[in-house]
Design a protein around this nucleic acid. Structure first.
Length: 214
DNA sequence: CACATGATCGCCT
DNA sequence: GGCGATCATGTGG
């Protein structure tokens, strides 16, 4: 008989090093996510991504994001209003999650922004784990998803309806701005200053030259 | 650190 | 059929 084919699980277990206690954290309002996408991308630097798994909580502080501006943005999956099953979650109300697979192997998680029908989102590019975890542990969208066990099975879920994935408010940070990473094909949009990062975090991804303001 | 390359497959044209 | 909102590894400066 043939070699057993490995089936990808609906959702993977989060890394145990991310255990944390969400007690006392404040949640965001729906209207917060309905703001313009750039504001949200900036504002969630320092916020906490959290996941519940088998009655335990796991979390990390977001240190790097990118804004994707929908129909007008050649780097966005919803460019020119493109509407396919994969991209459909981008059209949901602000506060939902959009997850996609790149290069056949890495998941990327986005927070949907704007009101329903506006297909914009914020890509979560990197986070900082608890002290003691390697600086690059959650550095890069693929690694962040892998550590949290987030897969495309989570695409379309609501972060505000009491589910297993949530976003909590954090502390204000020193914000740096640059162009986005890995979108060179997007023409003029490739140079738009839509990447935001915590200047004081070692967990930020990408080349060093993109770690300073424009 | 910068740059090049291979891995690997769902999605779109 | 081609190509990515990436990552790990290897080379060279």
């Amino acid at each position: 008989m043939a070699t057993p084919k490995r089936t990808s699980p609906a959702s993977n277990a989060p890394d145990p090093r991310l255990r944390f206690d969400p007690f006392g954290f404040r949640k965001f309002s729906r209207d917060f996510f309905r703001q313009d996408t750039v504001s949200v991308a900036r504002a969630i630097i320092g916020a906490w991504l959290a996941r519940r798994h088998k009655n335990h909580w796991y979390g990390a502080r977001i240190v790097e994001t990118e804004a994707y501006l929908g129909a007008i943005d050649a780097a966005a999956h919803s460019w020119r209003g493109r509407r396919t099953p994969r991209v459909e979650p981008m059209y949901l109300d602000g506060g939902h999650l959009y997850v996609f697979l790149v290069y056949g192997m890495h998941s990327c998680a986005n927070v949907v922004t704007g009101p329903a029908g506006v297909a914009e989102a914020v890509l979560l590019r990197a986070a900082e784990g608890p002290e003691g975890t390697p600086p690059k542990f959650l550095s890069g969208p693929g690694r962040l998803c892998a550590a949290f066990g987030i897969t495309v099975a989570a695409s379309g879920i609501d972060l505000l309806s009491g589910g297993d994935l949530r976003l909590f408010q954090g502390q204000q940070r020193n914000i740096g701005i640059s162009k986005r990473i890995g979108v060179e094909y997007a023409g003029e949009a490739a140079d738009w200053p839509l990447r935001f990062f915590d200047k004081d975090s070692a967990a930020v991804s990408g080349p060093l030259r993109l770690r300073t303001d424009l």
